[in-house]
Design a binder for these strands. Structure first.
Length: 469
RNA sequence: GGCGCAGUAGCCAAGUGGUAAGGCAAUGGUCUGCAACACCAGUAUCCACCGGUUCAAAUCCGGUCUGCGCCUCCA
C-alpha cells in the first residue's frame, strides 16, 4: 500500500510502526457553527482510508479532535450571551449528526481540547525547560521557532522566505516576540473569556498545542499517519511537528496526508464570498450518500468543484449502483436455492478480478476514483449475468461483492425494506388488471397517480417493481 | 514578491514512458402496450500551446498561456 507523504512529496510504501496496527490522527473541526461541505471532505476521505485499512486487516486507532476553545467560539458565545461550552457542546452534537448521515464512522476517540489542558501545560513546561519556549512580559508563552532546526520540513518553506512574507508581523505590535516566526503556546485571558490557571498567567492555549498533546496522549509520541486539509500544512502542522519533536525528541508522524479543497465556482468557499454551504443545507436537497459518492469520485489530492449539476450527475451514477443491488434483491426473492451451475461457478470466479482492480486502485494512494470505476464494472457484470433463472447462491455472490466493495467506500447501497401501504398495493393490482384488459389509459392514470405519491413503477419481465423517488 | 498545484471528449474524472479506465449527458438498436430499468453499438488519430530528449511521451526536460492554492484564522 502506497501513501503520498507531504513530508517527502512522494508516494511511499506504508510500513506501520507496530505490525498490524495503525495510529492515525485527523485534525477535526472548530465547533462554532454547523460544519460546511468543505469540512466534510477530510471526514469522508480519511474515513475511507480508515475503512480500507481495516478491510486490509489493520487495527486502526483513529483519533480526531474537536477544537472547543477558540476566538470564534467565544465570539459566538458573547453574541448569544451564553458560556462558550454551550456553543461547543451544541455544535459537537450537530457535527456528529452530520457525520452519521455521511456514514462517517465515529473515531476511536474524539478528544476535546478543553479536557486536555493539563497535558498542554506539561508539554509547554517541557518546551521551556529545553529552551524551545519563553515567556513574554504579558505572560504569553511563545515557541522559539529558530531553535527547531527542521522547521519548514513539512511545508518545504525556507525560514528566511517566511521571514520576508511575515514582515508585517514585525511592525504589528507583537514586539514581545523574539522573532516574527515564533508562535503562541499559551496566551493571557481577556475579560470575559474562559481561562485556566497556569504557571505563566490565567489564560488559554494557542491553537497548535492541542493537537500535539492529544495525539501524544491517545496515540503515543510517534504515530503512523497525521492528516487534515491542505491548508493546515502551514502553519498548523508545521508547528505541531516543531512542538512535538522538540518536546518528545522523536519523529512525530511518519506519514502526513492532506486533502485538497472542495471549491465552489472553482474558488475556495468563504462566507464573505457567499459561496458557502453547510452539510445541513445539502442534506435538505440530496441524500448525503450522494455527497459522499461525489467526493470519492475524484482523487483526494485534487481540488474538486461543487455544483448542483455535478451533484445531479453524481446522484444518477450512484443510483445506478443502487438500482443494480435493488434488482438483485428482487431476483433473490424468488430465486431457486439450488447450487450454482458450472457456468455460474465460472462467472463467480471472475468476481475476484473486480476486487483485485479495486484493491489495486486503493493500494495506490487511495485512488477512490479508480476504485469506484471497478465497482461500476462489477455492476455491469452483475446486470449482464443476473437472470430470473439464476440460482440464489449466484445472485447472492453478485450482490455480496457489490455491497462489500461499496461498504469499504462507506457507501450504503442497499435500501431498507419498506412495506407498501395497502392502498398502494391495491392500486398496483388495479393497474395490472387494467393492463390485462388492455385499458392502458387507466393503467397510465394509476401509474401517474402513484408517481405523484413518490412511487415509481417499472414493468420488468419478472413482474412489477416499484421504488420511492 | 516567495513557494506550490493543475489544464485529458458536451460535463466530471482515472491514467505519469509503450500507444487514452469509469461515470453523467446525448445518439442508434434490443426489450416494453408506451415508459422506466437493463443490455448492445459507435462516440477524444488524440491529452492547453511551442520546442526538446527517446525506437516510443498525455506521461520526461525547457519555455509560453490560463486557472487555483499556501505564505494570515481556515478542512
Amino acid at each position: 500500500m502506497k501513501i503520498y507523504n507531504t513530508l517527502s512529496k512522494k508516494k511511499e510504501e506504508f510500513i506501520p510502526i507496530e505490525e498490524g496496527k495503525v495510529r492515525m490522527y485527523v485534525c477535526g473541526p472548530t465547533v462554532y457553527n454547523l460544519i460546511h461541505i468543505g469540512n466534510a471532505r477530510p471526514m469522508i476521505v480519511f474515513d475511507t482510508v480508515r475503512r480500507y485499512m481495516e478491510h486490509k486487516g489493520y487495527a486502526v486507532n483513529y483519533v480526531s479532535n474537536f477544537t472547543d476553545v477558540d476566538d470564534k467560539i467565544i465570539k459566538k458565545a458573547v453574541e448569544e450571551g451564553v458560556e462558550a461550552s454551550v456553543i461547543s457542546t451544541r455544535y459537537i452534537a450537530e457535527c456528529k449528526k452530520d457525520m452519521e448521515a455521511l456514514n462517517v464512522k465515529p473515531a476511536t476517540m474524539h478528544p476535546l481540547a478543553t479536557n486536555e489542558i493539563g497535558g498542554m501545560l506539561d508539554m509547554i513546561r517541557t518546551l521551556m525547560e529545553k529552551g524551545y519556549a519563553y515567556q513574554a512580559e504579558d505572560g504569553t508563552v511563545y515557541f522559539r521557532t529558530r531553535n527547531f532546526r527542521e522547521y519548514g520540513k513539512l511545508s518545504h518553506k525556507n525560514l528566511d522566505d517566511l521571514q520576508g512574507g511575515n514582515r508585517s508581523l514585525l511592525v504589528s505590535g507583537e514586539n514581545q516576540k523574539e522573532d516574527a516566526l515564533d508562535f503562541v503556546l499559551w496566551k493571557p485571558k481577556k475579560e470575559g473569556e474562559p481561562y485556566w490557571e497556569s504557571p505563566w498567567c490565567e489564560g488559554r492555549p494557542g491553537w497548535h498545542i492541542e493537537c500535539s498533546v492529544m495525539s501524544k496522549r491517545y496515540l503515543g509520541d510517534e504515530i503512523d499517519i497525521h492528516a487534515g486539509g491542505e491548508d493546515l500544512v502551514f502553519p498548523h502542522h508545521e508547528n505541531e511537528i516543531a512542538q512535538s519533536e522538540a518536546a518528545n525528541g522523536k519523529t512525530f508522524a511518519k506519514y502526513w496526508m492532506h486533502n485538497a479543497f472542495l471549491n465552489i465556482d472553482h474558488k475556495k468557499m468563504s462566507k464573505s464570498a457567499g459561496n458557502f454551504f453547510t452539510v445541513r443545507d445539502i442534506a435538505g436537497k440530496y441524500d448525503l450518500q450522494i455527497l459522499r459518492f461525489f467526493m470519492l469520485s475524484a482523487h483526494y489530492r485534487s481540488p474538486l468543484n461543487f455544483s448542483s449539476e455535478l451533484m445531479e450527475a453524481a446522484g444518477n451514477g450512484y443510483g445506478r449502483i443502487l438500482n443494480s443491488v435493488d434488482n438483485l434483491n428482487f431476483l433473490l426473492q424468488n430465486a431457486s436455492g439450488r447450487e450454482m451451475t458450472e457456468e455460474e461457478k465460472n462467472l463467480a470466479k471472475e468476481l475476484d478480478g473486480f476486487t483485485a482492480k479495486f484493491d489495486e486502485a486503493m493500494d495506490d494512494d487511495f485512488n477512490t476514483a479508480d476504485a469506484i470505476a471497478a465497482i461500476f464494472e462489477l455492476v455491469k457484470f452483475a446486470n449482464t449475468h443476473a437472470k430470473e433463472s439464476s440460482s440464489a447462491p449466484f445472485l447472492g455472490a453478485l450482490k455480496g461483492r457489490i455491497v462489500e466493495l461499496s461498504d469499504i467506500c462507506g457507501l450504503k447501497v442497499e435500501k431498507k425494506e419498506e412495506l407498501l401501504d395497502g392502498d398502494i398495493e391495491e392500486l398496483i393490482a388495479q393497474r395490472q388488471a387494467a393492463r390485462k384488459a388492455k385499458d392502458f389509459a387507466r393503467a397510465d392514470e394509476i401509474r401517474e397517480e402513484l408517481l405523484n405519491k413518490g412511487i415509481l413503477l417499472e414493468d420488468t419481465r419478472e413482474g412489477v417493481k416499484w421504488k420511492r423517488v
